[in-house]
Nucleic acid binder design. Structure first.
Lengths: 137, 137
DNA sequence: CGGAATCCCTGAGGATACTG
DNA sequence: CAGTATCCTCAGGGATTCCG
């Protein structure tokens, strides 16, 4: 059940980089994690996994995202090179969003995470219900 | 470079569960991701990867975490069964935190993510610097 | 259709002080 | 040492309105 210890040490040491010069911004891994850990990025990337989608298609696929957040997150994903944007000069305009090569590559780590979540969420809920230390603030 | 399409479809469909009954809370995967995507959980888990640590040891290992957030996040991790807490009735008291079995198991998905981040952060920074659409609010 | 611009509010999280 | 208890800030993000 346990993983290769070498691998884990490498992972931890990656994070340790953060402390070396006193600034966490210097740690690329932390930077990436901060990005993917925002509320919508992963969702959008996963929606685009099946193929390119237009603005309102994504919106309908993620019903609880606001237009503002969709716009903003798509811009961030573009800026980071995970998503490309193609405008068709029609009337009314059509805009298509698509995963780039690097955007597609992030699906693999995502899927590993999702698998873990799927395999373990029951255990977590069990632990949670049999544990009554008040966590909430 | 691309992954197994079957796998990806499964991942996306996991997320799609979220929309089915209108509430995202119903999606276990989203729930887990929300958890691990908070600012400190992953950091703490990774620090504990090497072995049990005491409260102030963790604190020193993550210099920019506040005492409040360390306490709070450790409680959440306990509640979710990822971390165990052992109190030694000495004076002054010593408290040791340690990854549980399930807490250890999450290191694998983490490490995949970290590997991806490490392999791709340069490409992302490159994309970012050659892209001047204002993203920030 | 695909956004941009504004206003506003909530809550994550930092700073500080105190305690068993 | 290992926390609790408050107070307070500020940025993430929702709702609404307007635009080419």
């Amino acid at each position: 059940m346990s993983d290769d210890p070498r691998r884990l040490e490498a992972v931890v040491s990656q994070f340790r980089k953060a402390g070396l010069d006193g600034t966490l911004a210097a740690c690329p891994v932390r930077g990436i994690l901060d990005k993917i850990s925002d509320k919508w990025s992963m969702l959008i990337v996963l929606e685009l996994a099946a193929g390119p989608l237009r603005f309102n298609q994504i919106r309908r696929a993620i019903p609880d995202i606001s237009q503002k957040m969709l716009t903003q997150t798509l811009k961030e994903l573009q800026r980071d090179g995970l998503v490309s944007r193609k405008v068709f000069p029609t009337v009314p305009p059509a805009v298509e969003y698509q995963l780039t090569e690097i955007g597609t590559s992030v699906l693999r780590p995502f899927s590993v995470l999702v698998e873990w979540a799927d395999a373990n969420y029951q255990a977590i809920e069990t632990a949670r219900s049999s544990f009554d230390v008040p966590v909430a603030v």
